[in-house]
Design a protein around this nucleic acid. Sequence first.
DNA 1: TAAATTTTTGGCAACGTTGCCAAAGTATGC
DNA 2: GCATACTTTGGCAACGTTGCCAAAAATTTA
Lengths: 338, 338
Amino acid sequence: MTKPSVVDVARIAGVGASTVSRVLNNHPNISDQTRQRVLSAIETVGYTPNLNARSLRSGQTQAVSVLLPMTGTPFYDTLLTAIHGVLDQHGYDLALFPLLGAQRIRRFKDPGALLYRADGLLISSQNPEVLYGSRPPFNKPIVLVDAHHPQYHSVHFNNVAAGRMAAELTLSRHLPVVLLDVPVRPGDLESPVFLERRAGVLDVLQRHGITPIVTLQAPASIEGGRDAAQQLLDWAHPHPVAPFFMVALSDDLALGVQRHLLSAGLHAGRDYLLMGFDGSAAAAEAGITSVAQPVAQMGRTAADVLLGALEGQLKTITQRTFAPTLQEAPSTQALTLM
Amino acid sequence: MTKPSVVDVARIAGVGASTVSRVLNNHPNISDQTRQRVLSAIETVGYTPNLNARSLRSGQTQAVSVLLPMTGTPFYDTLLTAIHGVLDQHGYDLALFPLLGAQRIRRFKDPGALLYRADGLLISSQNPEVLYGSRPPFNKPIVLVDAHHPQYHSVHFNNVAAGRMAAELTLSRHLPVVLLDVPVRPGDLESPVFLERRAGVLDVLQRHGITPIVTLQAPASIEGGRDAAQQLLDWAHPHPVAPFFMVALSDDLALGVQRHLLSAGLHAGRDYLLMGFDGSAAAAEAGITSVAQPVAQMGRTAADVLLGALEGQLKTITQRTFAPTLQEAPSTQALTLM
DNA sequence: TAAATTTTTGGCAACGTTGCCAAAGTATGC
DNA sequence: GCATACTTTGGCAACGTTGCCAAAAATTTA
């Protein structure tokens, strides 16, 4: 027994094939009586439409591909959920295509790749090879999320402004500044995220003639933050650590620092000030000030831009930049110095 | 200008459409001369095949869907790379469908979901709702990876045996046993992984009349391990921590423990013994013994099983169980007791 | 009641591909 | 040189769907 098609349904219901199609697509001008007959016929034969035929006919897939790195941070979770929510409401389904290793990027040059079996493409990758290599062989809408490129529709976060915002807060506290930076991973081109945040921070500080008393480097993780905190203690040794304001370029780093310094008896917001980036829930819970990024909103906007390109045929390139907001917490309350 | 099709190519090359098709599909009995003509015609018009038409005609998509949780642990990275490697060689492309939130699981009941636009389905989820809910509306091969269910082809790891293996090693060292367990997350059904490992450990210990002197619980992360280590120090206080053998149910936990106890002056392999699970590179680097899981091999096997079901039509349900191997490191070297 | 109008329906074609069959072309054997 | 075999090629149909058009049915109007 082969999978039933519209003609099978039509035969059972005693109608024409196009009538079945009309019922399936909610066309007007169908008598309730025939609609019911068709519906029950669909039920009895267990009909499900053949998507390939539908796509062939219509030239559309009702699918959107998302190209993204395989890092399972909460960031992508939030972003994807937001994107999916919007696109789902408009009848689009979502498939993910992870960037597995640099050599696999070659695959994206093949116009026959599954990735391109979609009506639109969302790219959330800072990978320069993806962004600055040849344009994908895909003449349908492409939107960049959390990335930026003049030739594509982009929805991104202003990391430079975020850096500036952090520096401004720093200035208001009149304390020595410690910068906790993220090193370039070997073999990997530097992610523009940290580069931009750093640039923002240093730009504002420089304008005010301030230089960090020390700059630490650690991978952007909680453990990295702990290492950096230890570096700081070692560096200060044997001198006591004076009150300072640490700007960590990510919330994970800030969390690690806070936890590690706590075991040395130092409390953020009491003995030193601390802030991070991303506006994560973890930072908020830990009472750490953070420059927040509206991740879900960016996801929704990216989906909206894609829908616009998909349905409304917007011709000019759309660039949406999201500004940072400050998520204040006890960790940056002005110290009562003695 | 519309996208060129085989007939366009055929017209340019001065041949029939089916000849173009034959060239595209590497059929035999094509003269080199016409093949060249067709090839250059394809080049000049920039032809790329329409996958929807191809799928409609052939009833196949040359695609495999992977259903998996959105946790971006290195585990899934390795697994996916292995799966992709095998399937790619056989001409199959891979699309990922993340399990975003419990409510989205409902989507998998829709037979029209993009997920099912594939020739086969790989499910790598411990989520009981996925495994024990109604069978997906998909009458093509389904293979479970890193999960187990009597009704599906499954490729999985014997976590009970892994637990046993850990316990055996423990016994040989004749030290008090500390078990570092993973708690049930609220609202979430317990992942069978830790349940099985725990069962294996406790089973062997019990047979030898041994009970852990203390059982700690922490979420399976490095930070969780650090918390657990602190718990242990608190618990032992004011008594000094005697030499013990800690079995942590994941490598991340073990890593956290090691790092935290180090700051208390305790060295794994010198003052206490420690082991984890997963065989991660991080554990190996840190000198921590681990019960290893052949992740890449499991991925390859899962792909092979799927290919078998796809091409060879294997009728009986295939179950492949992978046994643990011990990845020994200094952290479990016999202590020279004083 | 017949004509005009509107609603509802079926037939046909086409989306782009490939398998099948038959026809045309080429080579081999007697 | 002609029959036989083999190679290469083109035409046609079909995969399942939906849009268009015209036909049929139902409804309104005169």
